[in-house]
Design a protein around this nucleic acid. Structure first.
Lengths: 220, 220
DNA sequence: ATTATTTTTTAGACAAATCTAAAAAAAGGT
DNA sequence: ACCTTTTTTTAGATTTGTCTAAAAAATAAT
């Protein structure tokens, strides 16, 4: 397994390539990976040779059983390292992704199992995404969560995950005191643009619809 | 900096390439890295282009100032990760090298500084080798240590480092209860083959000269 | 000092992973 | 159904890092 192969598998998984129903297009992969479609075609052939993906010319790519298992293993490593960075080394949630992108490729089963143990076998990463188990089981559902934008005014809930985990979005949330575990109260909604009025802790803010469609709450 | 370039720099450093006096030969590097001399020549040119080594045809390689700084930074990372693996994840000292070979190439200054901090700024790795500082200072001397083979009968000392840190040697030491920090008493010496009779803790062993020339004590 | 041996370098080839430009196939529009 | 546009693939080139085989330089030996 090369690093590049691992990155392709991970991307294909994130684009939904574990379901055989709709194969992932060459273009979609290229765009996501910021590479050229021709490079994707080359890699699709290589991965197909190795039995990691199903690929037929002009018909896109989906992951094989082995491909899914491999992708989940990389995602497991990525997310465990993210938890480690936040909990043990005081990284902020917007800093972890870049470093975890490197750490996820370290080849040592013992290492990642020990990190898992050190962290007390966490179930979710710092963005609220579920961590696959050693056997490749993943709690796709996660918490019983709903997008902030889909909840009615008056709802009170706990922030459990983010949909977008880009650096600017995470920094925006930090600036407004929003993080995983925080209680959020929906005070009002502007019908015109879908913006929401919230109470987070003892502070009140207005957030745009774009924010509201990228934040998951568990309502109570 | 590619991973391969980093590995060459590290190897050149370990072969003594930081002293301009005796350049390191192509063959020596090839042998150490288990590669071919022609590959070393290629890399020597590339590293020379980048100002990391001094290289003139047929005259071997030595590290430039920048090369030394870079090599020490990689060694620093390698050794800090080794300490982390032993102290935080219960790796044994014969297991750490292979994983640290991978971890040393992770690019994040913040990561290694936080690991350093988490460990309380250790000065020595699990084999007793000194850890370079962030600025590239290294305590070459280390402890005021002497090879076990060079000490007189009757000496009592603390094991502070190993010269050979190969897996078989470290496992041999483990089997005989010898580790960094252990007190060793030299009870007798066989003139014929240089083997030594030792007391380690409450056990007594005879060890060959080969063992004795690869173990450092700090006598007291 | 000339030959033999060893070391080092060059030249050319190969694999992985990428790119550009052009060709082929698929999808969309009228 | 035909033409146009988009998507995908092929073909050929490039870079990094490696190799083998042959040439060149340095070292050693008689």
């Amino acid at each position: 397994m090369t690093r590049s192969e691992e990155n392709y598998l991970k991307t294909i998984f994130h684009l939904g390539g574990s379901k055989t129903t709709t194969p992932i297009t060459t273009n979609a992969i290229a765009e996501q990976m910021e590479t050229k479609p021709s490079s994707v075609t080359d890699m699709a052939k290589r991965l197909s040779e190795k039995g990691l993906v199903n690929y037929k010319k002009y018909q896109g790519v989906s992951l094989s059983e082995l491909g899914i298992k491999t992708a989940l293993n990389i995602i497991r490593k990525h997310r465990l390292w993210e938890v480690f960075l936040v909990r043990k080394l005081d990284f902020t949630w917007d800093e972890v992704h870049e470093v975890a992108e490197q750490l996820e490729h370290i080849k040592s089963e013992k290492l990642i199992d020990k990190i898992d143990e050190l962290l007390g076998f966490p179930k979710y990463d710092p963005h609220g995404d579920p961590i696959p188990t050693k056997n490749g089981d993943i709690d796709e559902q996660g918490y019983d969560k709903q997008l902030l934008s889909e909840l009615p005014v008056g709802t009170k809930g706990t922030c459990v995950a983010v949909k977008d985990s880009s650096v600017p979005f995470l920094q925006y949330l930090d600036k407004h005191g929003i993080s995983i575990g925080k209680t959020i109260h929906i005070l009002g909604k502007e019908v015109f643009d879908g913006s929401l009025h919230l109470r987070v802790g003892n502070r009140e803010h207005t957030v745009s619809q774009q924010i509201a469609t990228n934040l998951y709450l568990q309502s109570k």
